[in-house]
Design a protein around this nucleic acid. Structure first.
Lengths: 316, 316
DNA sequence: CTGAAAGCGCTTACAG
DNA sequence: CTGAAAGCGCTTACAG
């Protein structure tokens, strides 16, 4: 007869671990959660992942990370595969469009939506998009800008809509109506921001300030301005959403709307684990994190041509 | 009697997929590979992952990404878990130290080593570290520098050793012997680069040029120089290993040694799949990718004090 | 070539 | 409380 201690010893000695596939097949439990994001190359999503891992790693769950590359098609493939291999999902969808017969609804796995939204009954962790965008608008207005543009992502995403709404509303409250051509919809990518800025610079009425609705588009816009030799902030003020970690080293360190990305990941992970280990019928949570302004030096008063008086250079 | 076509139709209609756990238990095949990296937040590793996914995604393999956070302890936990769930591994180890009774040797899974080395019989995809470091040294020497420092990562890693050797050898070939205090060993992280640069600036003989052995340490060094108000490149030339994607926007856009990161990921993935689908007894491959110099504006001739003649400001 | 049976390694519900 | 047996959903080796 072997004692329990002796068995433990043998387990340790042989480094025995139950075969995951067998455990799963029998018990239906995977001991794994998935994190599905649109672009692991975007520092914002990379940090989100880090926040999630910081709470999942000490626990009994493995974290499986997957990358949809902002493609609905790849996303569908990944979900179809991954949802059969995990107990829970933390998910940043690419878009809210074309979402009918997806795997997500077909395969019922507890899911926390992060950053972007989807119709349905999910836990959610978002950021105060409209509040942040309003902060950006107010900052530019306070500096004296009136011809203000926004480079945004698709309005089919929650961040796109929220940042649009907050921005436009804040402008309206200051009595400013945005020109339609000053609202450019891009794709949340660097090249999108680059092209959008080029479009704005080619307009008859060039704006004196631009709000870029995410980190990558801010970089693209800044690169476009640099290649066109438009001085920031002298000739163009730029404010971005999401901080950029190399910003202090920039020629014109960008002023940005910041959120605590790590916190967002941590909260999403905690929410998921609460759901997994606790009462699944508990009412869905909806967490919204605050934003704040980090002032650097990419924003200034609008350019006044020598000898001119009045508000801006670009009035008709 | 049902036709094969009818069965296919039913499969499609019900979206039937074999349960992964059952397939794996029976066949021993996971249809999954793992990518284990030290820091998903480092753009270099994030891009590596992207390269790997670009070849794995179209194939019948899922990609499981895991993050060791440069910790041997976490790494061991992850490997112990992950190696039982995958058919192959692409692995960037944190260190070559303390590697005795690891899971990697105990659980025999085909493995491709990426960027960093480990003793043992593995496929490998590396970069020409010593060649790249020599390029950096030659660039600085050509500019007239003689008091040249290096901020390196641990010499227990292959990149650390290779970059050290290439750099020191190239200096020696030019008749330059590096001062011991000009060789600082940090940790490949941004804070490490920051602190190392501060140390160099506090030396009796401050170097006129520094080679930073990876992207994060280059950023740290640049931030330290900025906070100490040391002008780059006027008072200090800086050259980095690995490109930085926001570099064009910097006040002093850094000159760097670049490698094709995407290629490195792609090649590693191809190597692994060749191994998985083909002959496992095939001789281990060892691929070394080239580097090249990207000249921007963080390097210049050493500072000459007004009225002085000769080679550098910092000679004894 | 086709179809029924065995068995992958666990966990758990059940009989003793 | 303990121990033997059933069975999770597949794949594959085997009998017909």
């Amino acid at each position: 007869m072997r004692s329990a201690a002796a068995i433990q010893e043998a387990i340790a000695e042989l480094n025995y671990r139950p075969t995951p596939a067998a455990r799963t097949l029998r018990s239906g439990v995977h001991h794994t959660i998935a994190v599905v994001v649109p672009d692991i190359t975007n520092p914002y999503f990379a940090r989100l992942v880090k926040g999630i891992e910081s709470v999942a790693r000490p626990g009994p769950y493995s974290v499986l990370i997957a990358n949809t590359d902002e493609s609905r098609e790849i996303e569908e493939e990944i979900l179809d595969d991954v949802l059969r291999r995990v107990d829970g999902l933390i998910f940043v969808p690419t878009t809210e469009q074309d979402r009918d017969a997806g795997s997500l609804t077909r395969i019922g796995v507890p899911t926390v939506l992060l950053d972007r939204d989807l119709p349905g009954d999910y836990d959610r962790v978002f950021v105060d998009n409209s509040g942040g965008a309003a902060l950006a608008a107010q900052h530019l207005i306070g500096l004296g800008h009136r011809e203000i543009a926004i480079i945004n992502g698709p309005l089919t995403t929650r961040p796109g809509r929220g940042r649009h709404d907050g921005f436009i509303t804040a402008l309206a409250e200051a009595g400013i109506e945005i020109r339609p051509e000053h609202e450019v919809i891009a794709d949340f990518r660097e090249t999108g921001g680059y092209d959008a800025m080029l479009r704005l610079l080619a307009l008859p009425t060039v704006p004196t300030a631009v709000f870029c609705a995410n980190n990558l588009m801010t970089l693209g816009a800044l690169k476009a301005l640099q290649s066109m030799r438009v001085a920031v902030p002298e000739r163009m003020s730029v404010i971005g959403f999401d901080d950029i970690d190399t910003a202090p080293l920039f020629r014109s360190p960008p002023t940005v709307i910041e959120r605590s990305v790590l916190d967002q990941g941590v909260l999403a992970a905690r929410l998921l684990f609460t759901r997994l280990t606790g009462d699944r019928s508990m009412e869905m949570q909806h967490i919204i994190l605050p934003t704040r302004l980090i002032e650097r030096s990419s924003c200034a008063a609008p350019y006044t041509p020598p000898g001119a008086s009045g508000r801006g250079a670009a009035r008709r």
